[in-house]
Design a protein around this nucleic acid. Structure first.
Lengths: 147, 147
DNA sequence: TCTAATAGTTAGAAAGGCTAATTAATTATG
DNA sequence: CATAATTAATTAGCCTTTCTAACTATTAGA
């Protein structure tokens, strides 16, 4: 086991929670667009894959179907997404984002993004490139929980 | 606002939750050493700063004092940490990790670290260096919630 | 057709946050 | 020096998020 690999794992464990904290805080000050990170991630997924089923969403989020069913309940109640039934297989549901939902998810994204950007604004271009590259690597590796 | 900065923020928002998910999953399969991420982070902090107070811990975790008081309750009940009173200022508590606590936090750390390492093992050294550098930069920036 | 498997939901419990109010100890002030 | 203000931590009460287990409805298969 290489020292380098070890150092990477170590620093990932320390840093990832801090970044999450910053994102979470920022998501919470959307003035009316007060959604949690799982809710945000769910809506992003549904935006990307319209008419997706509950189970595919659950898999993406890394949560159990009952948890996601509740999460979906919440979003439906807030009229941010729609829950329909699939014509082909009537056991399945089809999820889609409403206009309101789109507006809120976009404003949350812009808020969070600009605060993250604010924190990183003093970094050099070369530092930023290194962060971008690292994140892209990690994104590939950890996509869908390495399943 | 630079394209680069924007791309960084974007990818951070997508990737950080996925990394967290992987760490969380791994933390949960400690066979008896079943602790949450906030609990893990708390114990790591107390290990690093023995006799630390509740408020300094709360600040490190980015949580409110009542939340941390509960979290500490849980760890004390499991006999993973000790809660004493400071001799100098008797309002303050002094936190320390027990032998059992140390064993558990170390095994959780080793578990999580080796799974992260497993996922990254196919990366080149140059990729790993880029991840390490990026994480160190981000660690500095997001340390203590940019307060 | 009757049984298996699959998709989602419901019920109920535990954990982890929060704010507001409380207790105890220390510091500052009239 | 006595009392007021501040500080450290806890308690109380609430809400949200997650889980497992059990249930309903639909489809697929023997």
């Amino acid at each position: 086991m290489s020292k380098l690999l070890d150092a990477c794992s170590q620093t990932l464990m320390e840093t990832a929670p801090q970044i999450m904290q910053a994102i979470r805080v920022e998501m919470r000050r959307g003035r009316g667009s007060d959604i949690s990170i799982p809710q945000f991630r769910a809506m992003r997924f549904i935006q990307r894959y319209p008419d997706s089923s509950l189970s595919s969403l659950a898999e993406h989020l890394g949560l159990t179907p009952p948890s996601v069913s509740k999460l979906v309940d919440g979003l439906v109640n807030q009229k941010l997404i729609l829950r329909g039934r699939s014509p082909e297989d009537r056991r399945k549901i089809t999820l889609s984002v409403t206009t309101t939902g789109s507006a809120i998810v976009n404003s949350a994204r812009i808020n969070a993004r600009s605060t993250l950007a604010e924190k990183m604004k003093n970094l050099s271009d070369s530092d930023l490139r290194s962060i971008l590259q690292a994140m892209q690597l990690l994104h590939l590796i950890f996509n869908d929980q390495g399943k």
